[in-house]
Computed example of a mutant assay.
Amino acid sequence: MSNTILHKAATRGHADHGWLDSYHSFSFAGYYNPERTQFGVLRVLNDDMVAGGRGFGSHPHDNMEIISIPLEGSLVHEDNMGHKEVVSAGEIQVMSTGSGVFHSEYNNSPDKPVKFLQIWLFPNKLNVEPRYDQVKIDREKGDNQLQQLISPYRSEEGSWIYQDAWFFSGHFDTDKEFTYEKKKGENGVYLFVLKGSFTTDGQKLESRDGLGITGSGVIRLKSLEPDSEILIMDVPMENKIK
């Protein structure tokens, strides 16, 4: 038997700083909801839009797996590990911040906004040597099927993190039915609709809606609109430090 928790897009936390327009699926910065602090090890899911020429100055992180997914435009990333990279829509960026990292992120365009997801997960290994990774997503592999973006394994498709978590995405034509089978029995699955709409077990999910599912091993979904796109995050509900 599965249990679900629905986070409709309009119920998310919201902060508009002018240069930054951010929606928070979980408690973050000035937004605190005791019923939305995390979903298992999934701690932050921010849906950000940064104005042209603006961004986040150098700031620290430690002991967090940070995944950035540009949706429109591109970001310039710079860190104290020596990286200066441009991360664009169609790519994902991963940082294992471990024992400590300073980094900055700026919109690569002087006049057009950049839209991206910023996702944080608690790691299962503490104080590791910080690392940076950036991989390109082959959009064709996610055409009417799920494509792996993140896993715990260095040898698998996409990037890897210090956590028993898997991320998949896919874009689907209207009325396509598909299933997702959970990778580990004790994990939960968090669905996040990037655009379009889907149904699962009678529940309709629209753009930027989130649905956390625990207990169920197989999740059945159906797309309802052309080019509907979804992100699936399969994450431990309890963090076991290794």
Rank of each mutant, 00 (worst) to 15 (best):
M1Q: 14
S2T: 04
I5N: 12
H7I: 15
T11E: 15
T11V: 05
R12P: 02
G13D: 13
H14Q: 09
H14C: 08
H14F: 11
L20I: 04
S25G: 07
S25H: 06
F26L: 07
A29W: 02
A29T: 00
N33E: 12
N33R: 08
P34G: 12
T37K: 12
F39R: 01
G40V: 01
G40P: 04
G40Y: 05
V41T: 13
N46K: 02
D48W: 10
V50A: 03
V50R: 00
G55E: 10
F56Y: 14
S58N: 06
P60Q: 07
M64H: 03
L71A: 03
L71M: 06
M81W: 02
G82S: 11
K84I: 04
K84C: 05
K84D: 02
V86T: 13
S88I: 03
A89V: 07
G90R: 14
T97H: 11
T97A: 15
G98W: 05
G98P: 03
S99F: 00
V101C: 10
S104N: 07
S104V: 03
E105W: 15
N107E: 13
N107D: 10
S109W: 15
S109A: 11
P113C: 15
P113I: 12
P113L: 09
P113R: 08
K115Q: 13
L117G: 03
I119F: 06
L121N: 09
F122Y: 14
P123K: 07
K125V: 14
L126S: 13
V128Q: 14
P130D: 06
R131D: 01
Q134D: 00
D138P: 00
E140N: 05
G142Q: 08
N144I: 04
Q148T: 11
S151R: 09
P152M: 07
S155R: 06
E156V: 02
E156L: 09
S159M: 05
I161K: 08
Q163A: 08
F172R: 08
F178R: 12
F178Y: 15
F178L: 15
Y180C: 10
K184M: 12
E186L: 09
N187S: 01
G188C: 02
V189Y: 00
Y190W: 14
Y190I: 07
Y190R: 01
F192R: 10
F192C: 10
V193I: 13
V193R: 08
V193S: 09
L194A: 05
S197L: 05
S197H: 08
F198G: 00
F198Y: 10
T200V: 00
T200M: 01
D201R: 06
D201H: 14
G202W: 06
Q203C: 12
L205Q: 11
L205P: 03
E206I: 08
R208W: 13
R208V: 07
D209H: 10
G210M: 02
L211E: 07
L211K: 01
G215I: 06
S216F: 11
G217C: 06
R220C: 08
L224S: 01
D227A: 10
E229T: 04
I230H: 01
L231C: 07
M237I: 09
I241K: 05
K242Q: 13
